[in-house]
Simulated scan of single mutants.
Amino acid sequence: MRQPDIEIYLKDADVDHKAIAAWLGQALGPCSDWQQKGQTWKCQAGNVPVTWLPKAVGKWNSLYLESDATPWDDDVACARAAFKALGVEVRCAPGSWVEEEGEENADRWIRISEDGEEEITWRTG
Rank of each mutant, 00 (worst) to 15 (best):
V90Q: 02
E104C: 15
E99P: 06
K42W: 15
R2C: 04
P49D: 02
Y9C: 03
A56I: 00
N61C: 11
V76W: 15
A19P: 01
P4N: 08
L63H: 14
A85K: 11
S62G: 14
I112E: 01
G125C: 07
L86Q: 06
E103W: 12
A79S: 05
E7Q: 05
R2Y: 07
L24N: 08
P71T: 04
S32G: 06
L28Q: 11
Q35F: 09
C92A: 15
K37N: 14
S96G: 14
E118G: 01
R108W: 14
W41K: 08
A81W: 11
L10C: 13
E101F: 11
L86N: 06
P71H: 08
A19K: 15
E117I: 09
V57N: 05
S113V: 10
E103M: 11
A22T: 12
R80C: 07
L65P: 10
K84V: 00
A106C: 06
P54N: 04
E103G: 12
A27Y: 04
W34S: 00
A82V: 03
E104H: 14
S67P: 09
S67A: 08
Q44T: 13
Q39T: 11
E7Y: 02
Y9M: 07
A27Q: 12
A22F: 12
D107K: 15
E114H: 08
G102F: 14
K59Q: 14
I6W: 03
P30R: 12
F83E: 05
L24H: 08
D5L: 00
Q35T: 13
K84M: 02
R123F: 05
S67M: 08
I20M: 05
W72K: 09
W122S: 01
D73L: 15
S96C: 10
A56E: 07
L10Q: 13
A85Q: 12
G87H: 04
S32V: 06
E117R: 06
C92R: 14
W60D: 02
Y64K: 09
A81T: 06
A27L: 01
D73G: 11
K55W: 05
P54V: 07
P30G: 08
P71E: 00
K11F: 12
